[in-house]
Write a protein that binds this DNA or RNA. Structure first.
Lengths: 215, 215
DNA sequence: CCATGTGAACAAATTCACAGCA
DNA sequence: TGCTGTGAATTTGTTCACATGG
């Protein structure tokens, strides 16, 4: 039996699988919170309208997590998924662009689980420098590199206007951030060594628009 | 030659294709804005690091848009894509949840193209009722149905806390909204007749987290 | 001749069907 | 027996190679 080592990152895992794993994790945490300690792929799938086979296939890429004939231990499975997503260690996040969206995202993150901590915020707009977002002080974008170095931030959130997006992205890359979540509606020239994920409100709305029946 | 009618919605178009079409459209608008009137799939792909064949395949699902041996007319192609995404008619949007995120999204949309207009905002929090977001007055969630009817809104944006998300989603559905963009980190029990798209910051961050090498 | 548009080949992802183990 | 884990079948999506036509 080819035992996979769940502590090392596989390059070959699809984005779709990771997406689902993250959702599974959330659902498991929910079960935990309501006191359910055991589940099966079938039961789990039915509760959250997922696919039971898909769940098993997704997990199979990382090892064996259940007991045949029985099912899964909720907390244990949650722990294993959390660990393989790299969530047992905290992740520091820096937000670039402290406008409406940037500050909303910052506040949003302070509610969620402690895994992702916003440790810094920068803005191009000089008027915003020194503003307080929660307990965070907005600093000039020119200090981004220093800030990343100071905080050892691994993730950058890009919430600046389109015009500044590419250059701030490049700053993030130069500063040594390993992943970027981009909210600017632009196709960035991506740096290969930095995982970049786009979140594009306008694209999502346009996708939905297609399905609005005119009949 | 099986001529497709680009004015009717095909049920069979993949989400990935729609996503790309929306991106093509944005890129075309960019070319327009810098005065470029003609392009080819190759040229276009190189400019925006896309795949030339993919572009042609995506377009092929809807008809013929180019001239063999020549390429595409930028404005014309933009118009055709815009039309098949259903963007030539305006779309009314209602935002539920006028907290940080909701109001940021509202403001964000007032910058983008006029296709999507936020025509109403509601909140569960009584303290927020009556607040002004731009020229919009926040109304109680109990008036959601009436608001949808008044404005003929087709799209709902769900930016309420997790605890309220399912019930407000159900309200959107009951009110007759045709599509929902959900920002609450929860797996909604989806209504089949309503296109629902989740945008989940936490999931995106967890996906990125996986790739943060610990080596 | 050149770039589009497309059938055919290929790859990836999902689903099926069942083997294997508690 | 019941549910996990998995090879095989299927579906879906992408890439290739070229026929088509301005």
């Amino acid at each position: 039996m080819p035992k996979r080592n769940s502590s090392q990152r596989l390059e070959s895992v699809s984005c779709a699988t990771l997406h689902r794993l993250s959702e599974y994790l959330r659902c498991l945490r929910h079960l935990e919170s309501i006191g359910i300690t055991k589940t099966s792929s079938r039961d789990f799938a039915e509760r959250f309208h997922l696919s039971a086979v898909q769940i098993r296939k997704d997990l199979a890429q990382f090892g064996e997590f259940g007991i045949r004939g029985v099912g899964y231990d909720v907390s244990q499975l949650a722990g294993r998924i959390s660990s393989l997503l790299g969530l047992d260690q905290g992740r520091s996040v820096i937000v670039a662009g402290m406008g409406n969206l940037g500050s909303a995202l910052t506040r949003f993150l302070s509610f969620g689980p402690e895994t992702f901590e916003v440790v810094g915020g920068v803005d191009c707009d000089l008027a915003k420098i020194g503003d307080k977002i929660g307990h965070l002080t907005v600093r000039p974008v020119s200090e981004l590199r220093q800030l990343v170095r100071e905080t050892k931030a691994e993730i950058g959130i890009l919430a600046v206007p389109v015009a500044a997006a590419q250059s701030v992205y490049d700053e993030f890359v130069a500063a040594g951030v390993q992943a970027v979540l981009n909210f600017a509606p632009i196709r960035l020239r991506i740096h290969a060594n930095v995982r970049t994920r786009n979140v594009d409100l306008q694209v999502y709305l346009e996708e939905l628009s297609y399905f609005l029946q005119t009949t």
